[in-house]
């Protein structure tokens, strides 16, 4: 049962991890995007629909990522250019994405696709315990394993990464270096959207192989919340996402064993868990929050 839950945790957590990593980058640049939920949902739907139409999950994956990016661009434009309230814009984008995907997705609800299947890595997947847990997944899961250290390196050891972080902390410094904070923010938010779109795509074409209306079920919101839990660190985002995945896997495992617990109480688990981990982390002083996010969070009129 432990192997089953751990494997399930990684399988279910990958989509959230994609979105969370993207949000780490966007928030490091000083923009919080609740529309991540919308980007994920858009990515999940577009990836599924394009995979169905073309028969190629790879084209579907690309399209899903781009869909997520497009939703993020709306956010970027309104927040960066028009200085609209970040939280309100993000929520409206969720609403927009829910409407659009429910509308366009009704013909796809019970369609079948040939999505991305788990690939067992030779030799490694034969290791007892570790093998099935880590080395028998779809290719996107392996990709996200690689992205965690890559993004960490990018943020802390590359020059563009330093500029990006400076944009979130003291944009006047970036400005004085002759770089454009606006451009950097656009790129960061777009990257966040792309990642959320890929995460959504993983959900529909690799994890479940189905499209269901509003199938992300708040995963994008959880991804944003987990960034705070992660203290804006990619490695801890990984921990957070797989904790969420663990709660989901536990729920499935318990349900599969016909436990006498109402499924509705189990459905709550991931959301309650997210609240609990946030509670534990935030009780301690938050010092690592990027400076320009603090303004959004503490309700400075945020350009509203």
């Amino acid at each position: 049962m432990i192997v089953e839950i751990l494997t399930g945790a990684i399988r279910a957590g990958t989509s959230v991890l994609f979105a969370s990593l993207g949000e780490v980058v966007a928030q490091r640049a000083g923009v919080i995007n609740l529309g991540t939920e919308g980007s994920m949902l858009g990515g999940a739907f577009v990836a599924f629909a394009v995979t169905y139409q073309t028969g190629s999950p790879w084209i579907g994956l690309l399209a899903g990522g781009l869909a997520g990016l497009l939703f993020a661009l709306i956010h970027a434009f309104l927040v960066i250019q028009r200085r609209a309230n970040q939280l309100a814009v993000g929520l409206t984008i969720i609403f927009l994405a829910q409407g659009l995907t429910a509308f366009m997705g009704q013909d796809y609800v019970d369609k079948q696709i040939n999505g991305l299947n788990p690939i067992a890595i030779p030799v490694l997947s034969d290791i007892p315990f570790i093998g099935p847990v880590f080395f028998n997944h779809d290719i996107l899961t392996y990709l996200v394993f690689l992205l965690v250290p890559l993004i960490w390196w990018f943020l802390f050891y590359s020059k563009p990464g330093v500029l990006l972080r400076a944009t979130g902390e003291r944009e006047e410094v970036v400005f004085s270096l002759g770089k454009s904070p606006t451009l950097i923010r656009y790129l960061a938010v777009s990257f966040g959207g792309l990642m959320a779109g890929l995460g959504g795509a993983q959900l529909s074409i690799a994890f479940t192989h189905t499209w269901v209306e509003n199938m992300t079920q708040g995963r994008g919101i959880i991804a944003v919340a987990l960034v705070i839990f992660a203290a804006w660190l990619p490695t801890r985002a990984m921990l957070g996402a797989y904790l969420f995945g663990g709660a989901q896997a536990l729920q499935l495992a318990l349900q599969g064993r016909g436990l006498e617990v109402s499924p509705f109480l189990l459905f709550m688990l991931p959301y309650l868990l997210t609240l609990v981990v946030l509670f534990i982390v935030e009780r301690r002083k938050v010092s690592s929050m990027p400076e320009s996010l603090r303004k959004v969070f503490e309700g400075e009129r945020g350009g509203g």
Binding site: L34, L87, G218, I221, I222, V224, A225, I228, Y271, T274, L275, L278, F279, E282, R283, V286, F297
Partner: peptide, 11 residues
């Protein structure tokens, strides 16, 4: 606990 109300209300 300094938890942002937008995120907690959504959850």
């Amino acid at each position: 606990a300094r938890m942002n109300e937008t995120i907690t209300t959504l959850l």
